[in-house]
Design a protein around this nucleic acid. Structure first.
Lengths: 261, 261
DNA sequence: CGAGCGGTTGAGGGAACTCAAGCAGGGTGG
DNA sequence: CCACCCTGCTTGAGTTCCCTCAACCGCTCG
């Protein structure tokens, strides 16, 4: 649980909290959609305990939960590094993955005013998240009303994305869903090296999670990977996928089957 | 397109705009989730044209569109009377219904800060909607920051509801989906008369819309209605459904098949 | 009356699920 | 070091659920 506490050096005017960069040297805060909430932290110079309550960066090991069940007006989180999945649990106890969340994505914004949740967020890799207490967010918003545009944008994009998922589950069949998944950015992390002509994506989650998210079984996911490979659209090496033909993959989303090959 | 313009009587302190109540006498504004935006309208005494830009109630006939494609920072709407459906359109032109919206529901809140939409909202019945210009909403919010709680709650509930739909499409089969639909309030309008022991719901949309929303075909919707009827769970009379056994219907959501009867 | 629309019902086939076996890789311990 | 297990993933065989195609029914409207 070792919460990593980052304190901005006192005296700096813009005291951006830098995320540790264990993987590729990319600082997580560069992608933060709410930098103004972190900047110019009033916690500077305060004792550590209080500062902790204002701003905290938390580290999660794979499989660890960012516990979020039913807490109202608690915190929201921004992913600085790593990937999490969010799931809903129904009355029968079955898990439904409803999202994957990589660097720069915001979690829990929908929980600020409602508490009727049965879901959780779990780390798929080593994860660093920035906690933003709702109280702090609201305080920021009162002094800086323009921030609401950011908040509305974040919420709006989540609604928009959810509607796209609705469309995918509603009218695409399994092979198309997987093709969409690979291109949509809903889960895959695109390789830092975009230099080569072939694009490489890494899937931090296991097949079962992809299956749950896309509303299919893990066997069908595996078979669909095989089918896309046989069509020369992708190369599969475990969780690393080479997109041999992104355009063909995009066309694959529209057409249920490619009889060729 | 005849836009119905409602003007608050000057001199009243709380000048709630009352929706016309053509059906059951229930004023739409009683269910408005954003009454503070309408109340104490600064438009009082202003010339009609300016008032028009501040607050407007619009009437739609069935099949008419509340056009919303790709406009940024335009308006949001609150349904005062009637029901609309919102749909997304993919590149192939196919329609996917992503929601039904009855009295008191808010449309377009996700479009305030983003414009990349290919969807539309269409009236299923005669509809009255209240237009709230984003500029007015933002002005209200600057003077009354507590309103943001309402806005966040509205957006949060839409996200939460979308995740539930994700779960329904992801792991329920067709009969369960329809049972969920009847109980969820996602589309059916429950009868004003809740006096009888049996509850009655009215479905303002056609079978094709239900099918699209639930990710199935209209034939399967029809067959599923028949199956639920054969299990003595519902009575079907066109778009009017009697819930003979709501508890059994809820149990039906959890269990794929009831072998009995 | 006929056309058109919305809805129901039937027959057949196919896509995806279930059940099951097998494989590869990593970790542990003898 | 290798046997062993465990987990994650793949592949195969059989079945089922649901989609597709089609006919039919009731209603409204011109």
């Amino acid at each position: 649980m070792s919460a990593v506490l980052r304190r901005s050096p006192p005296g700096t005017t813009r005291s951006r909290v830098r995320a540790p960069a264990p993987r590729s040297g990319a600082p997580g805060c560069d992608h933060c959609p709410l930098p103004a909430v972190c900047d110019e932290s009033p916690g500077n110079g305060l004792p550590g305990a209080l500062l902790d309550s204002v701003f905290e960066q938390r580290h999660l090991e794979p499989g660890e939960n960012l516990y979020m069940a039913g807490q109202k007006r608690g915190s929201i989180w921004v992913v600085a590094e790593g990937t999490l999945k969010t799931s809903e649990v129904d009355l029968a106890g079955r898990e439904q993955v409803v999202g994957f969340h990589g660097t720069g994505e915001v979690l829990g914004i929908e929980r600020i005013e409602i508490a009727e949740h049965r879901g959780f967020a779990r780390a798929l890799e080593p994860v660093h998240v920035c906690r933003i207490p709702v109280s702090r967010l609201l305080a920021r918003l009162s002094t800086e009303p323009a921030l609401w545009r950011d908040v509305l944008g974040i919420a709006g994009r989540q609604i928009t994305r959810a509607r796209e998922v609705h469309r995918v589950l509603g009218q695409l069949q399994t092979g198309q869903r997987l093709a969409w998944f690979l291109l949509s950015g809903a889960g895959p992390r695109h390789s830092a090296c975009a230099c080569s002509g072939e694009r490489t994506v890494y899937l931090p989650m296991q097949r079962q999670d992809i299956a749950s998210f896309l509303g299919m079984t893990l066997e069908t996911v595996s078979r669909s990977f095989g089918a896309l490979h046989r069509e020369r659209l992708i190369e599969v090496r475990g969780r690393t996928i080479q997109l041999l033909d992104p355009a063909g993959l995009a066309a694959r989303i529209l057409h249920p089957e490619r009889a060729a090959a």
